[in-house]
Amino acid sequence: MSATSWVRIVRPENPRPKTSSRPDLDRGRGRSLRSPRSHRNEDRDPCIDICQFDARNRWCVGCARTVEEIRGWRKLTAFRRTALCNELKHRMNRLRRNV
């Protein structure tokens, strides 16, 4: 029989993390809390939590998307999201004029 030796790993106590002057950095360690692409408009969901649909054109009053566009948002490529966001601006203007 072979003898098993156990090794105990002791981690030193971490000193209090430094605070950063930039709020988007993780406690001065240089890692961003946000994903690198999260600042782009096409990656953000345009929903503003006003989910009421216009009966005439079936667009959401809050974001101007259809139900199908809302359901498929995560599956869209960045190019298609950008194209849809540009279209949503025009739709919102049409919704405001019709109100």
Rank of each mutant, 00 (worst) to 15 (best):
Q52L: 14
G30R: 00
T77Q: 01
W59D: 09
N86R: 15
S5R: 14
P12S: 13
F79N: 07
A55I: 00
V61L: 15
P36W: 02
V10G: 09
N14V: 08
G30N: 03
R71V: 06
C51P: 09
P12T: 07
R81G: 12
N93Y: 01
A3C: 08
E69Q: 15
T66V: 09
A64K: 06
L25N: 10
D54Q: 08
V67W: 05
V67S: 10
D45Y: 14
R40Q: 14
A64N: 05
G62F: 02
G30D: 01
A3D: 14
E69N: 05
R29H: 02
V7S: 12
N57H: 10
L88F: 13
D26V: 00
I48V: 15
L33C: 01
T82M: 06
R34V: 02
R58Y: 04
C51H: 11
P15Q: 10
R11M: 12
G30F: 00
W59C: 04
E87F: 00
A3L: 15
R8I: 12
S21K: 09
R31T: 00
E13N: 12
R29Q: 03
N98Y: 04
M1F: 11
N98F: 02
S38C: 11
R31L: 03
R22Y: 08
P15L: 06
L95N: 10
V7E: 10
M1P: 08
R71W: 03
V99D: 08
E68K: 12
V67I: 15
P15T: 11
W73S: 08
N93R: 09
W59R: 15
G62E: 02
E42R: 04
T77G: 04
N14H: 07
R16N: 05
E68R: 10
C60L: 11
S35H: 04
V99T: 05
E42F: 03
P36C: 01
A78L: 12
I70P: 01
S5N: 13
R8H: 07
L33W: 11
N57E: 14
F53W: 12
E69H: 05
R80Q: 15
S5H: 12
R37S: 07
R91A: 08
L88H: 14
K18V: 02
K89P: 01
R65A: 03
T82D: 08
R11P: 06
S35T: 04
G28L: 00
R65V: 07
K89W: 03
K75D: 14
R56D: 13
R80F: 03
D24G: 03
R44S: 06
C60D: 06
T19F: 03
R94M: 06
V10E: 14
I70K: 07
N14L: 12
V7I: 14
L33T: 06
R56Q: 13
I48F: 00
R97D: 15
R44T: 06
T66I: 08
V10H: 13
H39K: 02
E69Y: 06
R74D: 07
